[in-house]
């Protein structure tokens, strides 16, 4: 038990990730409002991005650009670019998802006049 607590305290980033992830799922599942469901989805997606950033963060690291003519390349002083590239791409994907989902939500609102899932389902029946 104490070991578990220790590992948790040593990794605050990952604790935050887990909290965000579960919180997002809860909102997605529990809230009947479509926009709130979207917010939940957004939090889940953000938590994945947070995870990517959390493990790639490096204290005192610099931009991974190798200056031509530099004597030796020290891999330790550079930040790993790949997770950051993944992060940027994932954010773009997230924004695109948000665009499509907001379009769908606004179409639902225009059609059914409400954003509450239970009211919409009643109209569908």
């Amino acid at each position: 038990m104490i070991e578990l607590l220790q590992t948790l305290i040593q990794r605050p980033n990952f604790v935050v990730f887990v909290i965000l992830f579960l919180w997002g799922i809860y909102i997605m599942a529990a809230h009947p409002n479509f926009v709130k469901k979207l917010i939940g989805l957004y939090i889940v997606q953000t938590s994945a991005i947070f995870f990517l950033v959390a493990f790639s963060a490096k204290e005192g690291a610099t931009v991974p650009v190798i200056v031509e003519g530099a004597a030796a390349v020290e891999p330790l002083i550079y930040a790993n670019p790949l997770p950051h590239v993944l992060t940027v791409t994932a954010i773009v994907v997230q924004v695109a998802t948000l665009g499509v989902s907001l379009a769908l939500v606004s179409a639902i609102y225009r059609k059914f006049g409400t954003l509450e899932e239970d009211e919409v389902m009643e109209q569908l029946r």
Binding site: L41, V44, V93, L104, V120
Partner: peptide, 20 residues
């Protein structure tokens, strides 16, 4: 529209899991 929205919620959640 409603079912497309549900598909979107589940599908994007799946994609996030895959990314994770």
């Amino acid at each position: 529209l409603v079912y497309a929205f549900r598909y979107l919620l589940l599908g994007s959640f799946g994609a996030t899991l895959y990314l994770l």
